[in-house]
Amino acid sequence: MSETSSNMNSENARLRLAAILREPVVLALFAIIILLGIGEAVSPGFARGDQIIKLLTVAALLGFAAAGQNLVVLAGGEGIDLSVGAMISLGAVIAGNVMDGSNGGIIPAVIVASGVTFLIGMVNGLGVNLIRIPPLVMTLGMTSVIQGGLVVFSRGIPSGNAAPALMNFINQPVVFGIPGILFIWLVLIIGMVFMLRATAFGLSIYAVGANPQAARLVGLPVKAIRTIVFGLSGALAGLTGVFVIGYTGNSFISVGDQYMLPSIIAVVIGGTSLAGGSGGYIGTVAGAIALILLQSVLTTLHLEFWGRQLIFGGTLLLLLMFYGRQKSARI
């Protein structure tokens, strides 16, 4: 009797371990450790503290962009925001012009950049929820509108500069050798997790994403929630733009393009389902770090560009095979 129960216990423990190992966050952490190991083996010093902090700074920029993407995807209804890249460019250009190299302009730059992108995000949300344009094409269309607007505004000439204080905050250590952007990212992570797990708004995002009919029947404003997440995604992308110009010093009108698809990939390899309703921001954080780490390891490999891309694409598919798989139709 006691033997069977201990057998069952060990069986249970085994199943629980298997379940934990299948958690996207755990898998992404494994990927991070393996990648760090490969990087250190190929080029000693790769996993040194200051190198890791540099990597995390780049990952933080992607993490900010992916936070908004995460909310849009979680809220379901085929939610996806392809305008994240253009919004980042817009945020960077606005911030550069508002600051124009003066420290006093940092706060106004943050407010104007995230305010404008919030409003454009709300237009995305209204297009999707009121007119019922599919999110993919709505945000794709908005991307070309924003890019066109940036061309008109800048006439193709880079303009605006980051304030020195902002650049120091993002690139230079503030406390314990850690740059300020990482503290801000930590605040964002805590804020996102708190919002998604402990506030009515966060929980209703899951409810709306998992089952919109049920959410409507219990009285949740499905369309309003699905609209606001697009606004938040815009604002977070605009904020990312402010940090991007702080990171690079100046902006050009396509500076944000490189973040568009990675923001989706970080969300997906972090375990958030593109169908909506399941996942979370911790996974996305791990996904963003894994993605940046992978790119960085590939850079140290001294391969030709095509070789790096080949491995990048292959690793992506491999990661998806582990936990980006969809349900079978067999019932």
């Binding site: 891309q309 080949l310 980006g324 969809q326």
Partner: peptide, 23 residues
């Protein structure tokens, strides 16, 4: 057959096809 998510999977294969083209 492997049930990967179409959008992300074809983004990944797209990177691979482009890499092969460059090779």
């Amino acid at each position: 057959y492997l049930r990967l998510q179409p959008m992300v999977a074809t983004f990944g294969t797209g990177i691979i096809f482009s890499a092969l083209a460059l090779w």
